[in-house]
Simulated scan of single mutants.
Amino acid sequence: MTRPPVPPFTEETARIKVQAAEDAWNTRDPDRVALAYTEDSVWRNRDEFLRGRDEIRAFLRHKWDRELDYALRKELWAVSGDRIAVRFQYESRDPSGQWWRSYGNEQWEFDEDGLMRRREASINDVRIEESERRILGPRQDSEPPLPLS
């Protein structure tokens, strides 16, 4: 299976890859999202270590069971060959109704078919009030970049 664009990435093709990832994650569909990763993909997400699509799928199901109304924005940070770095923000509420904004950085490494074989994510969470939300769903074409704070 090939998932264009494929490496080596240019700044333009990396931006396409980043937007495709954002769009997929905003579906909150673990089966769809998992197809972007190799069968033996290796992840570090916060303090969790995963290997392979089955573990990724299970992780995402659990994630979106507890991160309700999840909405994400990703932004290209750097690109080199088969690697892309992104920064991101997402907002969600927990089952008690508390809203959160999560900030982080990811490092991605791809195989020759454009599937991600490695993902490392560092993430920090900040409590917010519902009135402070600024990510209200999938990205709109006219939406400006998000501030970091």
Rank of each mutant, 00 (worst) to 15 (best):
T2I: 12
R3D: 04
R3Q: 06
P5N: 04
V6N: 13
P8K: 06
P8I: 13
F9K: 01
E11Y: 04
E12Q: 10
T13A: 08
A14V: 15
A14Q: 07
R15A: 11
R15M: 05
R15E: 13
I16P: 03
I16K: 09
K17Y: 02
Q19M: 12
A20T: 12
A20F: 04
A21R: 12
D23F: 13
A24N: 02
A24Y: 01
A24M: 09
W25Y: 07
T27F: 00
T27G: 10
D29Y: 00
P30M: 00
D31G: 00
R32D: 03
T38N: 01
T38C: 08
D40W: 03
D40K: 05
W43C: 02
N45F: 11
N45H: 13
R46G: 15
E48R: 10
F49P: 03
L50Y: 08
R51N: 11
G52D: 14
G52N: 14
R53C: 02
D54N: 07
D54V: 06
D54I: 02
D54L: 11
E55F: 00
A58D: 13
A58E: 15
A58Q: 15
F59S: 07
L60T: 00
W64I: 01
R66I: 14
R66A: 06
E67V: 12
L68R: 13
L68I: 08
Y70S: 08
A71R: 03
R73W: 08
R73K: 04
K74P: 06
L76F: 08
L76K: 09
V79Y: 08
S80P: 03
R83V: 10
A85Q: 12
V86D: 10
Q89D: 06
E91L: 01
E91Y: 14
S92H: 11
R93S: 12
S96T: 09
S96Y: 14
G97A: 06
G97W: 04
Q98K: 05
Q98W: 00
W100V: 09
S102R: 09
Q107S: 14
E109C: 02
F110K: 11
F110L: 06
F110C: 11
E112N: 05
E112A: 11
G114Q: 05
M116I: 14
R119I: 03
E120P: 07
I123M: 15
I123Y: 02
I123Q: 13
D125F: 12
D125A: 07
R127I: 15
R127P: 03
R127Q: 09
I128L: 08
I128V: 12
E129A: 01
E130R: 13
S131Y: 01
E132F: 01
E132M: 02
R133C: 13
I135V: 08
L136Y: 02
G137I: 10
G137Q: 05
G137F: 05
G137S: 04
P138K: 07
Q140T: 12
D141K: 07
D141E: 07
S142P: 00
S142I: 04
E143H: 04
P144L: 06
P145K: 02
P147G: 09
L148A: 06
S149L: 14
